[in-house]
């Protein structure tokens, strides 16, 4: 479903030139569950960002469901973000002025003028937050906020979920709960790419891709997982 061909991303030029991604190729099947690991600064976020259209490639191709998306205009990418790709961030990135329920509804507000509350409620229940729907982010714990963010990612029924260190801000126990949630989502058929430092997370995915200096240094299939 997702194919990355010879992707390179170079920031700046001259002395300040940084090659964040260096000729990376990768494919992810439908229903796949891939973790991306590597030291800090190895280009994990950059890889995720070019898939999600948050940043542009310097060279190479990205093909989603048979269509090239790397050369789309900014406005054309809006449509992809709305329906096909959803993000989960390390810092949750919820709007502070909105309640949990409203945050989950947010993508629908931009998608189709009117949000469907029942669907958002169902998703909040699914992530175990049915008792917190009217709480604002600052009234929720880190783990709870990340659940809201996951429910928000699911509300448009995307074919691909990108998560950048989703457990990075959590204690071990909370992190494990979030990991389990991703595992369930994958079992339900969602394709997931997750950037992580956490070996626990890597263990539950079907494939672990290791990056170093913007290059893929290893790809390991987890036995019994794929």
């Amino acid at each position: 479903m997702l194919e990355i061909k010879n992707a390179s991303k170079i920031y700046g030029d001259g002395a300040a030139k940084v090659t964040a991604l260096d000729n990376v190729s990768l494919e992810v099947e439908k229903g796949g569950f891939v973790s991306i690991m590597g030291p800090s600064g190895s280009g994990k976020s950059t890889l995720l960002n070019i898939i999600g259209g948050l940043e542009r490639l310097t060279s190479g191709e990205i093909i989603l469901n048979g269509e090239r998306i790397d050369n789309l205009t900014e406005d054309a990418f809006v449509a992809i973000r709305r329906g096909k790709i959803a993000y989960v961030f390390q810092q949750y990135h919820l709007l502070q002025s909105l309640t949990a329920l409203e945050n989950v509804l947010l993508p629908l507000v931009f998608y189709s003028a009117n949000g469907k509350t029942e669907k958002a409620m169902e998703l909040l229940k699914r992530v175990g937050l049915e008792k917190r729907v009217n709480h604002k982010p600052n009234e929720l714990s880190g783990g709870e906020q990340q659940r809201v963010a996951i429910a928000r990612a699911l509300v448009t029924a995307p074919s691909l979920i990108l998560a950048d260190e989703p457990t990075g801000n959590m204690d071990k126990k909370t992190g494990e709960e979030i990991i389990r949630l991703f595992e369930e989502l994958n079992r339900d058929g969602h394709t997931i790419i997750v950037v992580t430092h956490n070996p626990e997370v890597a263990r539950i995915t079907r494939e672990v891709v290791s990056l170093q200096d913007g290059r893929i240094v290893s790809r390991t299939k987890n036995v019994g997982k794929g």
């Binding site: 973000r81 990135h93 993508p107």
Partner: peptide
Amino acid sequence: TRDIGIMRAVGASRRQ
């Protein structure tokens, strides 16, 4: 800036 990024990331167009 962050809120704008959030809205854009969840599918807001520049017009929105």
